[in-house]
Computed example of a mutant assay.
Amino acid sequence: MFGPEGPTLRELAVQALSSVEHGYDLLAPKFDHTPFRTSDRVLDATARALAPLGPFADGLDLCCGTGAGTEMLAGLCRHSVTGVDFSAGMLDAARHRPRPAGGPGIAWVRGDARALPFTAAFDLVVSFGAFGHFLPRELPGLFTQVHSVLRPGGRFVFPVPAPPRPTRRDFWLLSGFDAVMRVRNALWRPPFVMYYRVFRLGTVTRELTRAGFTVELGVLPGFGRRADGSPRARLVVARKADARQAAGQPAAGDVNS
């Protein structure tokens, strides 16, 4: 699961007994050598799906971690890219990540996704692998924050993998992990919020709509379909209304499911 450059079992145990913020500060130097980093396969597929919806001027990577998604975003935006995260350690690792020459400048900002320090400054907001750190009751506030930092017509985009079936080993591994975390958080303070099976697509689309978005579900290319024909990975594209939509006219360039 972890290569020789990844964290040791002791380091993971210390992280798990810390707060979310301090835990990621500790893990940051070795984070890119763990399975928790968003895979290049997911990032590349998201970039391919987003390219026809552009061009984009300014982008925000929400809960950017060490910046893998931010680099992807830099290939889609012409003017500026911002990565925001509440872990100083993760941001420090992001700043030291090697970057290819060219492309827009990247600003790294320490901030909480539930209280973003921006005005309506972005055309595109993306996020990868961070939603397990938010309890379902926090989603309305989180999505309202994202809506507030988007310009009219801007999009909030993130991939969502299909949940594993109960007949699959992954289902029981993820369910077991969530159960252990619930016990840990009941017995230990500070809590470490990280659950794999609380971010459910039906709840997410409902709360995005309540926050003022128009939501479309695309298929993330390259991941194929399950035996029942459903996609193995979806791309959620939540759009903030622009002047055309406010006037009752259809908006151009939406993603097809």
Rank of each mutant, 00 (worst) to 15 (best):
F118A: 14
P163Q: 09
R169G: 05
L201T: 14
L174R: 08
R234W: 12
G141A: 14
T209S: 15
F128V: 02
R155F: 09
A186Q: 02
F213H: 03
E138V: 02
H147Y: 13
F134E: 03
V198S: 07
F156A: 08
T144A: 15
V109G: 04
G141D: 14
Y195T: 02
A130K: 01
R225L: 01
A179I: 06
A130P: 01
F131I: 00
G105I: 03
L201Q: 13
S230A: 15
A113C: 13
I106H: 01
G132H: 08
P191H: 09
P152D: 08
G154S: 11
T205M: 10
R206M: 11
R155N: 07
F192K: 00
H133C: 04
V180I: 10
I106F: 04
R110T: 10
S127M: 04
W172P: 06
Y196C: 02
A121C: 12
T144W: 10
G224V: 12
V146S: 04
F118Y: 15
G132W: 02
A179C: 07
P136F: 10
F158D: 03
F134M: 03
R169P: 01
A121S: 12
L201C: 09
P159G: 06
A120E: 14
R226H: 13
P140C: 13
R234P: 10
R225H: 14
R239W: 03
E216H: 15
M194W: 03
G103S: 09
S230F: 05
V157D: 00
F131S: 00
F122A: 09
G202P: 00
F128H: 07
V157R: 02
T167D: 15
P159T: 02
G105K: 06
G176R: 05
S230P: 00
E138C: 04
K240V: 00
P190M: 00
S230W: 08
L235K: 08
A115R: 13
R169S: 09
V109M: 01
V236S: 06
D178A: 10
W172C: 05
A186G: 13
G218N: 11
V193L: 06
R155S: 01
L174A: 03
P152V: 01
P164E: 05
V204P: 00
D170E: 15
Y196L: 05
T144R: 15
T203F: 15
V180H: 01
A227Y: 03
F192H: 03
A211Y: 08
S230V: 08
L150Q: 03
P191C: 02
R168L: 11
F128S: 00
V198Q: 13
R226C: 10
P231C: 06
S230L: 12
R182F: 00
G111A: 08
V146Y: 04
K240C: 01
M181S: 09
Q145I: 06
R189M: 07
R234G: 05
R165T: 02
F122D: 00
L135K: 11
M194S: 03
R225E: 10
L139T: 01
F223P: 09
R151G: 05
E207H: 11
E207A: 08
R151D: 02
P166A: 07
G229N: 10
L187F: 12
P191A: 06
M181N: 01
